[in-house]
Design a protein around this nucleic acid. Structure first.
Lengths: 317, 317
DNA sequence: TTCGGCCATAGACAGAAGCTATCGCACCTT
DNA sequence: AAGGTGCGATAGCTTCTGTCTATGGCCGAA
């Protein structure tokens, strides 16, 4: 019974809904108006759903019709994207997918992206290139990169942003730092010694957001040291004994350790980003896959965070 | 060019892929085998993608074909669900959607579910009924409820589970409790006084999971008081001065307060649940909507948790 | 009243999807 | 080696249906 509904009908429905008018929709579809009217009428009769209410000056959409209209627009778009991608896969004409990434993005995020791509597009290759978020966004605008994996926030309407990872933001310190005796760091303790930051030039929005968050808990830090890589940050922590905020999943120099900040629930979030005007045929399919995988997380039961390290275990014993 | 691909083709492709055999697929589709072969061949030629490799003993699927096959199966299913739902909306034959919920589910989750349903299915009504998770699962099995909003975990293969909310699990205590002087509760402090629990009979899996989590951090609590509602729990905390673990978003008696547990990241998760064999025509559409809304969270920048209450602010000042 | 915009109806035609019958091919059995 | 079996491809015909042009009806504006 649903088999009466073909993509042709969905295209017609979308056109009528968007023009609000059978005549103009027919023009847009390069179709005679009676053909269009007849098709839609027969469909409505066939499935027993009135989609449009005909008026002398155009059409209105019924509530049930609205469901079908929304679906129609999305379904036609999806079909076209899938077919384009599949044809590119078949023809072996999928261009290398050029991905930019910030060095602050964890390796495992890049690895799982890479694996997802390899399984969706077997035999197709990716090219990763690192850089500052600012520079990477510029390169995407200049079309020399197709997409990127970057820390949030990313502002601007021209980007499609799909979050892919999130980890607590923790305080990084020397393992022999007095603060390492504590299991959590209080904001006032942090305020005095937080001096090491990512270079704001590399990602000004992220820096601004971090400052805003610090202000909210009454900290106005002394931005003394600017680093451009996680390694630099760790080296600065090690040598200057200052504190830094880092992603909990960052691989850590053994002489360093991390502690959570008390009373806040800050996270370092990472997203897959590409220009709205994406051209690479794999992107729509890849984004759809990321959304599916990420959307329904395996949250079958409450999560837990294991103790971050042995030292904390000892302190609690 | 993609317009050659119609739902008819997708159905045929799915059937061939699932049977691995044109002949048997044709039987399943009540179609003559030459018609099927011809349709698929013309489609492959038309879009320029070879989907199947014909062998003397059946067919194999090409990599590009696999993309299309997966898509085909999903797309046909989606179409049917949408049309069924739309027809029910149009005919005004959408039965009342009977939702069960546990009283441990936060009101705002139920409210946003209710709003989503009202906008997707205007004019259609829902019926909420509260109860124990165990009892609600039974009522869903007995078909006297269509779906439910319940705390996780929900075990068993017969359920479709879509997480819809998550909040930290915190320690509930009297505001005048000595522990309320601290900003975080250490597990050993919790171990001594954690006595108040939800009744295990109401949701044995959740109780078991909580016990397991407590064991992981070395706590074997004395399960002294069993409550069946958040209000009961709060009354017990107030009167017995014991501690309880509750969802941070629970509306709190003003004489009580909550504190996070140090070093763990436990959450109380809530999910929309319905039987795999769901019959209510709105459910597939509703679930699809929940997944879309929930999947791409507005995680445009790093999240923060505001201080839970004024007292904590004072302690930090 | 008349004109113009919009949708519905009618009838003709071409193309596409379906059917039956048959062929070709590879493999298996005897 | 010969014949049987299972599977897909091809050919030719029929039926159905999607499209076209032409036209009619309705309503509001000029």
């Amino acid at each position: 019974m649903c088999d009466l509904v073909e993509f042709r009908h969905l295209k017609y429905i979308a056109a009528v809904a968007e023009t609000g008018n059978f005549t103009r929709a027919a023009e847009r579809l390069f179709l005679a108006q009676p053909s269009l009217s007849k098709q839609i009428k027969e469909l409505e009769d066939g499935i027993g759903i009135q989609i449009f209410v005909r008026h002398h000056d155009g059409v209105r959409i019924t509530p049930a019709g609205q469901m079908i209209v929304s679906y129609a627009i999305e379904a036609v778009k999806t079909r076209n994207e899938i077919i384009q991608a599949a044809r590119a896969v078949h023809g072996g004409t999928i261009p290398v997918l050029r991905i930019g990434f910030s060095c602050f993005v964890q390796q495992d995020v890049l690895r799982s992206l890479s694996e997802a791509y390899a399984s969706l597009f077997p035999g197709c290759s990716m090219q990763f290139s690192g850089g500052d978020p600012v520079q990477i966004l510029h390169r995407m605008e200049a079309k020399s990169l197709d997409a990127a994996v970057l820390p949030l926030p990313i502002n601007g309407e021209q980007w499609t942003v799909e979050p892919v990872a999130s980890a607590p933001l923790v305080v990084c310190m020397r393992a022999d730092d007095p603060l390492a005796q504590q299991t959590e760091i209080q904001p006032p303790e942090l305020a005095e010694r937080l001096k090491i930051f990512r270079n704001p030039e590399a990602h000004s929005e992220a820096h601004a957001r971090l400052m805003e968050m610090l202000t909210e808990i009454g900290i106005t830090p002394d931005v003394a040291c600017l680093a451009t890589t996680p390694t630099d940050i760790q080296w600065m922590v090690q040598s200057s004994s200052g504190l830094a905020l880092i992603d909990q999943k960052t691989p850590l120099d053994p002489r360093l350790t991390t502690r959570p900040i008390a009373n806040v629930n800050w996270t370092a979030d990472t997203a897959f980003v590409h220009p709205l005007s994406a051209e690479h045929p794999a992107l729509p399919v890849l984004i759809r896959h990321l959304r599916k995988v990420n959307g329904s997380k395996p949250a079958k039961h409450t999560h837990r965070r294991k103790y971050a390290n042995d030292l904390q275990m000892k302190l609690l014993a």
